[in-house]
Amino acid sequence: MEKKILRKKIINNRDLLDIDCKEKLDNLILNNLMEQNILENYENIFCYVNFGSEINTFPIMEFLLQNRKNLYVPYIDKKNNLMKLSLIKDLKSDLEPGYYNIPEPKNFLRKSVDNNIIDLVITPGVAFTKNKYRMGYGGGFYDRFFASLKKSPLKIALAYDFQIVDELPIEVYDIPVDIVITENQIIK
């Protein structure tokens, strides 16, 4: 299936989840992540800030901040069409609507960060394969980010079961994640 069609179909399925069902699935995914005891082993963690019907990452980010982890979140440098990171300390006061209305760090927090300090990434995606390849939203931000790193951090993707597909059109620049966690499975 063509990427654009598949992307639209899966996002539509995600958008159709009613609020109670979505909350239940998000909690199952969060519990599966926490049961892996992964977050405790890393200090510099980059986590996407959810928008729309994406899996809610705010409980994860809150956990990281409460456990004194260095939490980095993305923002888009529109001028250079790049995703950059900022360290944040407070979810309520450090974020504001940004690129496509996605919460991003406020401007005064946007300081140059050496991306190579990141040792764990919690990444979004639209679809994933059992081989852990991901299809994002088509901007290439995460693939470019992963390719720019000198060392590869652990990459974890959060997804609903229906986002796991048999195959995706894979490009040479596509970089798989290390673990995909859904409400019913952990793909390593």
Rank of each mutant, 00 (worst) to 15 (best):
K4I: 11
I5T: 15
K8V: 05
L17Y: 12
I19H: 14
D20V: 12
C21H: 14
K24L: 15
L25H: 06
I29A: 00
N31L: 11
L33N: 03
Q36N: 13
I38T: 06
L39V: 04
I45Y: 06
N50W: 10
F51D: 08
E54N: 09
E54I: 00
E54F: 09
I60E: 09
L64H: 08
R68G: 11
R68L: 12
K69G: 08
N70T: 04
N80W: 10
D90Y: 13
G98L: 07
Y99Q: 06
Y99R: 03
Y99V: 00
Y100L: 15
E104H: 05
E104K: 04
E104N: 08
S112C: 15
S112Y: 14
V113I: 15
N116H: 12
N116P: 09
I118L: 03
A127V: 04
A127M: 10
K130P: 10
K132W: 08
R134M: 09
M135G: 01
Y137R: 06
G140C: 06
Y142A: 03
D143I: 05
R144M: 08
F146R: 01
A147Q: 13
K151N: 14
A157R: 01
D161E: 13
I164N: 06
V165Y: 12
D166C: 07
I170P: 08
E171Y: 12
E171W: 10
V172A: 13
Y173G: 00
D174R: 01
D174K: 05
P176D: 00
V180R: 05
V180A: 10
T182I: 02
T182V: 03
E183F: 10
Q185T: 11
